[in-house]
Design a protein around this nucleic acid. Structure first.
Length: 567
RNA sequence: UGCCCGAUGGUGUAAUUGGCAACACGACGGAUUCUGGCUCCGUUAUUCUAGGUUCAAGUCCUAGUCGGGCAGCCA
């Protein structure tokens, strides 16, 4: 019985799952599936890594296997402990627990011993060519390379030289250990690839014990093998490396995991390369790696995304070998979906306009009952203060309203959510500017929500806060960081930075119902009719939360307006 | 003018491995609604091209077109 059947899942298998099911019957019969997530600790994880994480951990879970976390720390000049810590934190936050935690650097001694073995077998040699010469000897995409003059060094000489490389006798870049494969191979990776380079650099874990470091190709597959990884899942650009991956395992006669490649994630309105993300941070275009506009896990987290929504997103986009670009709207829909079910509702006015109920008793305050989450009855209700002077959204009033504008207009009626139906009687303007500064309305006492006499229907329902009771809350209205679908498509002579959206952050001080002052950092809300927000975990103070907009609600009115179909 | 990989509605992903091209999202239309949210119903639209094999081709073969990757002592 396959794992799919045992889960009772009817979902069809992606191409990796198909191969895994075959392998579990065939070349890996009797073994359990074992995968790994192998980040290089030289940057923060982003949504693209999340796809890989969900894939690797998800596969392990689905087939009753395990998944390791392994840091691919073979290049001490770029890697730091700070990233190691952050990566572990992000993987856990996403909701995954690795079986074993490893570092490629833990295998340096074993790798060294295996290198000697290959030298003894005549399959590796010490090369004295300079980096420039190696490039020349490698040939080009269309022409074969030529053998290094050091290729046929005697085994004993290689052994001696390699030992002295390790002993620190040679300067950086002066010598390499190379695999002896085929300088005429159409696959450049097989043209005697470098296995070790001399690098007198201090490593974040091994310190100064090594001055030679293994290259990716030499370290990765061997690490997989040591850990007994059955399926080494990586991105498409390593496809050309697979023959080398296989060659090393065969040459050594060690356990031979299977490498399978899939297409990395691309998102519209987003850049994903570590280099560009680093540039955004370093040049101050964003406030840091955890800026809510960044596609990093930390950024998304601070933006208010939930681990569930990110996992759901990764599930929805699927896995294939086709190089696709996912509409960022799919990601946004995933959070909306999850937050709709889980986020508590609140009424918050972003851009207030004063509204006075002329027939409401001057000093009266009454509490109205509001539903915390219509999708979740267990979330209960809360009391919200209502009084004569209110604040409503400026956008919810229009003096010359088109036919399909269901909100407040002169002489028109709307319901104040959870309260009364009101009628707009008078519009007060600033005589100097002509700007509307106050709306004078009357309310119908018979229409209180839940009163049983509240049956009268009006089309428009708007949110509000009581002016005297409202609390000020700073709100950051985030939008997409880039203003065009493909930020890498820069104008002539420009860079991706020219595509930055100047309005990706708008800060306002909103008026909120009083209970919101008590929200805890990290707590998520739906501000009714506006969007989903989270109390910022960094900048919120006790009693004074700061909110980040995760994503706006879908807005079919805005859509109508955009299409000019409002009349 | 090398090698490897890929191409299915607007966007993604499937297709019992040669047997009626489907699912999700979007878009559009409608219903419902004390959130112009959610939900529900409906509509739309797909196999890169040309040959070939076959009773039957998205799937196999041949040629082509287009796209991606590869010439770090990066991963």
């Amino acid at each position: 019985m396959s794992a799919t059947e045992s889960e009772g899942s009817t979902r069809r298998l992606n191409f990796i799952e198909q191969e895994i099911e075959k392998d579990l019957q065939g070349r890996f019969a009797g073994r359990k599936l074992k995968t790994r997530f192998p980040p290089e600790p030289n940057g923060y994880l982003h949504i693209g890594h999340a796809k890989s994480i969900c894939l690797n951990f998800g596969l392990a879970k689905k087939y009753g296997g395990t998944c390791n976390l392994r840091f691919d720390d073979t290049n001490p000049s770029k890697e730091e402990q700070e990233y190691v810590d952050a990566i572990q934190d992000d993987v856990r936050w996403l909701g995954f627990q690795w079986d074993e935690l490893h570092y490629a650097s833990d295998y340096f001694e074993q790798l060294y011993a295996w290198a000697i073995e290959l030298i003894r077998k005549g399959l590796a040699y010490v090369c004295d060519l300079t980096p420039e010469q190696i490039r020349e000897y490698r040939g080009t995409l269309t022409s074969p390379g030529k053998n290094s003059p050091y290729r046929d060094r005697p085994v004993e000489e290689n052994l001696d030289l390699f030992a002295r490389m390790r002993a620190g006798e040679f300067p950086d870049g002066s010598r390499t250990l190379r695999a002896k494969i085929d300088m005429a191979s159409p696959n450049l990776n097989l043209r005697d690839p470098v296995m070790y380079r001399v690098l007198h650099a201090s490593h974040h874990r091994t310190g100064d014990t090594w001055c030679i470091y293994p290259m990716y190709d030499w370290a990765h597959g061997q690490s997989d093998s040591i850990e007994g990884i059955t399926h080494s899942i990586c991105t498409l650009e390593f496809e050309d490396h697979r023959p080398l991956y296989d060659w090393f395992c065969e040459a050594l006669g060690i356990f031979h995991p299977r490498q399978i490649e899939f297409a990395r994630l691309n998102l519209t309105y987003t850049v994903m390369s570590k280099r560009k993300l680093l540039q955004l941070v370093k040049e101050g275009h964003v406030a840091g790696w955890d800026d809510p506009r960044m596609p990093t896990i930390r950024g998304l987290r601070r933006r208010g995304y939930t681990p569930e929504s990110i996992r759901d997103f990764c599930e929805r986009i699927g896995v294939a070998k086709f190089n696709s670009t996912i509409d960022v709207g799919v990601l946004e829909n995933s959070v909306r979906d999850h937050l709709n079910q889980t986020a508590q509702r609140a009424m918050v006015v972003m851009n207030p306009i004063k509204l006075v109920l002329t027939n409401y008793p001057t000093d009266q305050v009454e509490m109205v009952e509001a539903v915390n989450n219509p999708e979740d009855p267990a979330a209960g209700t809360r009391q919200v203060p209502f009084s004569r002077e209110l604040l409503i959204e400026r956008d919810d009033f229009m003096e010359d309203a088109p036919r399909k504008f269901f909100r407040l207009k002169p002489g028109g009626e709307v319901r104040l959510r959870y309260a009364y139906i009101i009628r707009c009687e008078e519009v007060i303007k600033d005589p100097a500017t002509g700007q509307v500064i106050e709306l004078r309305c009357t309310y119908d006492p018979a229409t209180r929500s839940g009163s049983g006499t509240a049956q009268r229907k009006v089309k428009g329902i708007i949110h509000w806060v009581s002016a005297a009771h409202a609390v000020d809350v700073p709100v950051r209205l985030y939008d997409r960081l880039f203003q065009c679908e493909n930020p890498d498509q820069a104008p002539p002579g420009g860079t991706f930075l020219d595509n930055l959206n100047p309005d990706s952050l708008q800060e306002v001080v909103a008026k909120a119902e009083p209970a919101l002052a008590e929200s805890q950092p990290g707590q998520r809300f739906q501000f009714e009719r506006t969007g989903y927000f989270v109390a910022d975990e960094v900048d919120s103070q006790p009693g004074r939360p700061v909110f980040n907009r995760t994503v706006a609600l879908r807005d079919s009115w805005a859509k109508l307006q955009a299409k000019g179909k409002v009349n």
